[in-house]
Amino acid sequence: MTSTPNSPGRGGDPVGDPVENPVTHTHDLTEPTVAETVHGVIDSALDEQVPVPAGPPVSAAAAALTARKAARRETFRLLLRRPEFVIGTLIVAFWVACAIGGRALAPKDPFTGDPFQTHASPGSEYWLGTDRLGRDVLSRVISGARDVLLVAPISAVIGVAVGTILGLVMGYFRGPTDDILSRIVEAFLSLPVAVVGLLALVVLGPSNWTVIGVVGLLFAPIVARTVRAAVLSERELDYVQAARLQGESAPYIMFREILPNVTGPIIVELTVRIGYAIFTIATLSFLGVGIQPPSPDWGLMISEEYSQIINGYWWPVVYPSLAIASLVIAVNLIADSLQGVLSR
């Protein structure tokens, strides 16, 4: 099983495998999949005793293509049937549009404020009000999507790529390699990513690229653990033995035999990591070591304004907070649906 999307903790990934099987014991029957139904059609013509009759007028390749397409379409159809997937996708699409459109969509300049309009309340002129420098909160929230939506996915991809290789090596070789790497991974897991990220960024100096590198590398052990678990159960299957008996090399078995069968957990993990990358990077920016001014980053906006909230100036804090919340929840909704569909 894979790790669940929302189990992973504060940047860490503590939760084991909540076991939840959508199909409860159906006793002596199993749920037929669409693909199996396809086989039913293809197979029932075949009688093992009788010499094989001429095939139907469909070519083999075409049949396979249809089957594969059908499987993919089926996955997509199942996803679309989940309202949480649709909602999540719409929200993410909205923020991606903001990230790309940015300046063009923003009604005002997000960087320069009107010094006579500091902390203006939300109204007809400034829909979401202005901040302490008189900058339009709406424009800043819209253009604030860009940095986080650039930095978070890249660091998630780095983390998943490095973690996948690490996990494959640990799970496949087991023995001393695994023991040593597992200890190191375990040590990394005992540190919340935001905490150790703070230390690393203080040392390295904050910039978008160091944030990407630090968060990516700190995610790697978490991903490695998930991938390792998937590889370990995969490795028990006889096809791995068969490949060895066929004389396949270790890299071939890892990357060509095992990897294709653990893509499900890896895709889910990637989505989950994107969610946590947003989470972590927002936190780091809030703590002052993430994305740097003058970026209208949401975490940064909150950090600049949160002390003013008790004076009643809530809008420069609450609106970027809503932005962060909507984005991370949306990504997690997508991850949750993917998990539900892919781990069937």
Binding site: N6, G299, V318
Partner: peptide, 18 residues
């Protein structure tokens, strides 16, 4: 639970303060 655990602590905090 899903929503709560997805949102960073400082964001939750600002909501609660508000």
């Amino acid at each position: 639970g899903l929503a709560g655990s997805a949102i960073p602590e400082f964001v939750t905090s600002t909501f609660l303060i508000f």
